[in-house]
């Protein structure tokens, strides 16, 4: 469990980092290293050089853009977890963050790193997909932007160009007050989830749902927002029965992942259950809901 030989560089600017990636296709970015370092130790990853972007000033800080919170890619998960801004403006992310790894891994792991890693069971990508966020990136050719639904391409695969540095992650903030729900199941606390579910909902003064969204992680190859559930529940009171009915079809249509940990039947059954629980929690914690 010693990494194969590699070199290490710490560029001082984003442009420099982009140039290194352009010049060496085997170079890999490292920020928190909570996934990459163990992969290297097991020699499953063998980068020629590690480009450490953790201290790049361009990747730091959380900015409030009004309709979104914009996280610098190198913002540590622990920093986001402690942020009053995140708690106030992005309650869904705040609710999901304690489920990301363990406290020590969150002290190192970054928001951008988790998104770029695109583990189908990871919580931050799930929240990003559920809220319909986006990522910003930079290459030697200039900046770029990809919406979440186009970003996640498969397990550990993204639409990010090979020589790009992911620079920021944009989580939309709704203009109306929201309720949120987050559930996941794994063999042990903080293991990779067999299934996770994130939901957010907003209601008008009459208790009718203005907007809602539900995303599932772990169940399919990518974190998946169930558009049909949002469509079905908008304009309704989101009763338990309406939630269940909306989920029935949506989960049946999902292409479920198969592995040795859980049967596809398990994932489908639990996706339906946790999806319903997340939606009910979102409804029950939203101002104005009256199912």
């Amino acid at each position: 469990m010693k990494a194969a030989a590699f070199s290490y560089v710490r560029p001082s600017t984003l442009a420099e980092a982009c140039a290194i990636l352009r010049a060496d296709e085997d170079a890999r970015l490292i920020a928190g290293g909570q996934t990459l370092a163990p992969m290297m130790a097991m020699r499953l990853a063998r980068p020629s050089q590690l480009v450490d972007i953790a201290r790049l000033p361009e990747l730091a800080g959380v900015a409030d853009a009004g309709d979104a919170l914009v996280f610098g890619a190198a913002v540590r998960q622990a920093e986001a977890e402690r942020s009053p801004l995140v708690a106030a403006r992005l309650p869904l992310l705040a609710k999901a963050l304690p489920w990301v790894g363990h406290q020590p891994t969150r002290s190192r792991g970054t928001i951008g790193g988790s998104v770029a890693n695109a583990d189908p069971a990871a919580e931050i990508p799930l929240v990003l997909a559920t809220l319909g966020g986006a990522v910003d990136f930079m290459t030697c050719d200039g900046p770029g932007h990809i919406a979440a639904q186009d970003f996640f391409a498969g397990p550990m695969m993204t639409a990010l160009p090979a020589d790009a540095v992911l620079t920021a992650v944009r989580f939309p903030v709704w203009s109306t007050p929201v309720g949120v729900g987050f559930h996941e199941i794994s063999a042990r606390r903080s293991d990779f989830a067999y299934v996770s579910a994130a939901a957010q909902a907003s209601f008008d003064e009459d208790g009718v749902c203005i907007a809602c969204t539900l995303g599932l992680g772990g169940a399919a190859a990518v974190p998946t927002r169930l558009e049909s559930v949002a469509l079905k529940l908008a304009g309704r009171r989101m009763t338990d029965a309406e939630i269940a009915e909306a989920l029935e079809e949506a989960v049946a249509a999902l292409e479920i992942m198969t592995d040795s940990y859980a049967s596809p039947e398990y994932r489908r059954r639990v996706a339906k259950e946790l999806g319903a629980r997340a939606l009910r929690d979102a409804r029950d914690s939203a101002p104005g809901s009256r199912p």
């Binding site: 067999y194 029965a241 269940a244 989920l247 039947e265 398990y266 639990v270 339906k272 319903a276």
Partner: peptide, 21 residues
């Protein structure tokens, strides 16, 4: 006795019903 095994067995044994309904 893994949790997925318990859930799968319970689902197979339970009368077909959806608790979320």
């Amino acid at each position: 006795i893994r949790l997925t095994k318990i859930s799968d067995a319970v689902a197979a044994a339970s009368p077909k019903q959806d608790r979320t309904l």
